[in-house]
């Protein structure tokens, strides 16, 4: 792995007006080529952190950097997937046109897309396994297919970094696994950072865990201990460990009902 940082923050602090800081004095680095998951409790600042990294929010103090540059400069090198709930699921648009949105930008002339853009969209769709669905209505896709199409849109940006906010929310477990397999495949050539509420499942796939709860701590996946979890989530931590059994010492006693294998 090379040592260029894909994402970094130094003394990053952000507060909405009149509120206590959502993030405070955050300093961390994610190396290029990493596969990282941002985890933490709801309201802990995960999405706020992402929005700061993308320059969609301005920090109160400190700074965020993408590939060593200010977010506004470098964010065109990011393929971003926001939380799915924000999109109108019945919007009349075909899958290919969704993917082509990844080709828009400041230099793009008016009128129809050119051959280069259409080729890029076709490659992106093939990469996520939706080559045959290009002409289908986006509204007719299943939840997992919709997420693949939106990942294809992010890939059509020809990014160095994929930044995905809760890409597997409300997907069933099987589809979730397939999506992670796809992300691991993409990680061969891209840095991938995903936000997840579900550390237990994610830790099987990612190399680095970014724990966010007003403050941020970064751990290699193997080092995430029960102490770290408890510190981050408080006593209500509920998670299923995959690498240990309940009989091991140090196993957090709370197993989630119906927890994932």
């Amino acid at each position: 792995m090379n040592t260029v940082s894909a994402v970094s923050a130094r003394g990053l602090t952000f507060a909405f007006p009149g509120d206590p800081p959502a993030l405070e004095d955050v300093t961390f680095t994610i190396a290029e080529g990493d596969f990282a998951s941002v985890v933490g409790p709801n309201g802990g600042g995960k999405t706020t952190l992402l929005r700061l990294l993308l320059g969609l929010l301005k920090p109160t103090r400190g700074e965020a950097r993408l590939f060593g540059q200010p977010p506004e400069v470098a964010r065109r090198q990011v393929g971003y997937l926001a939380q799915r709930a924000r999109l109108d699921p019945h919007f009349p648009v075909c899958v290919r046109d969704v993917v082509l949105m990844g080709r828009l930008g400041p230099g793009r002339p008016v009128g129809p897309f050119g051959r280069g853009d259409k080729d890029a969209a076709r490659r992106a769709l093939a990469e996520v396994g939706l080559a045959d669905a290009a002409r289908r209505p986006f509204a007719a896709l299943s939840g997992g297919q919709k997420q693949r199409a939106l990942i294809a849109r992010a890939l059509a940006c020809e990014p160095r970094l994929l930044l995905l906010d809760e890409p597997t929310a409300s997907l069933d477990q099987h589809v979730e696994g397939e999506l992670f397999a796809l992300l691991r495949e993409l990680n061969r050539r891209l840095t991938v950072i995903i936000v997840s509420h579900d550390l237990g499942f994610v830790s099987r796939w990612v190399r680095t865990v970014v724990c966010v709860n007003r403050r941020v701590a970064v751990h290699p996946t193997g080092e995430v201990t029960a102490e770290i979890i408890r510190e981050m989530y408080g006593d209500e931590a509920r998670l299923v460990r995959h690498d240990r059994h309940a009989t091991d010492p140090g196993h957090p006693s709370a197993g989630r009902p119906g927890g994932r294998p």
Binding site: Y80, M101, L104
Partner: peptide, 23 residues
């Protein structure tokens, strides 16, 4: 019609369009 793709992107997902540098 000239700005069809820009309008479509802004209507479908304004935040994504902004990140792509669409005004």
């Amino acid at each position: 019609l000239l700005f069809y793709h820009q309008f479509q992107a802004v209507c479908f997902d304004e935040e994504f369009a902004r990140l792509r540098g669409v005004r």
